[in-house]
Computed example of a mutant assay.
Amino acid sequence: MTIAGGIILIMLGAIFTWAVEFDIAGFDINVVGVILMLGGLAWLLFAIYRISVARRAVAPTTTTTVVEDPVTHRRVYEERGYTDPPVV
């Protein structure tokens, strides 16, 4: 519930601010609506930031190591998946 949660809070806050006429002593529904809209906007911006960071940080699935033997001048290719233990 990332972007959808922020949009829902903004919509709920807009409904409370402009569509609801409700009065209780010491309680203003318009202020609650504005607070919900600001919270929804902050949530929406944070969700967009999290999605953009997650898409940039893509880990490689495999690594390839090339080792050349100095005596025989042969190249050895070793390919490891990301779930394999590290090479010591």
Rank of each mutant, 00 (worst) to 15 (best):
I51P: 00
E21S: 10
G81Q: 06
V67A: 13
I3V: 15
T65I: 14
L45S: 06
T17D: 00
Y82N: 09
I51Q: 10
P86W: 02
V71N: 11
G13V: 01
L45P: 00
R75G: 05
R74M: 11
V76M: 11
V20G: 01
R74C: 05
Y82M: 02
V31S: 06
M1H: 10
L45G: 14
V32I: 15
L9T: 04
L9C: 04
A19T: 02
V76W: 11
T63I: 15
T65K: 12
I10Q: 02
T17L: 11
W43M: 10
I51M: 08
V88P: 14
I10E: 02
T62S: 06
T64G: 03
E68G: 03
T83I: 13
T65G: 00
D84S: 15
I3Q: 08
T63V: 15
M11L: 13
V66P: 00
A54Y: 03
A47W: 10
V66S: 07
D23A: 04
G81C: 04
L45F: 12
Y82K: 03
F46A: 13
V71M: 09
T17S: 12
V31D: 04
R50A: 07
D84H: 09
G33S: 03
V53N: 10
I29G: 02
A25Q: 11
A14F: 11
I24A: 11
I51E: 12
I8W: 05
G26Y: 08
L9N: 12
G40V: 07
T17G: 05
V76A: 08
A47Y: 00
N30S: 09
G40F: 06
G40I: 13
L12Q: 01
A59W: 06
I51R: 07
I51D: 01
P86Y: 06
L45R: 08
I10F: 00
E79C: 08
V71C: 04
T63L: 09
I7T: 07
G13Q: 03
I24Q: 12
M1G: 08
R50S: 14
F46K: 13
I10M: 14
L41H: 02
A25F: 12
V67W: 11
A25D: 14
V34S: 01
A47F: 05
G81E: 12
A57L: 12
V58H: 10
T65P: 01
L9M: 15
L36T: 03
I3T: 13
R56H: 10
V32Y: 00
R56W: 09
A47D: 03
T17P: 01
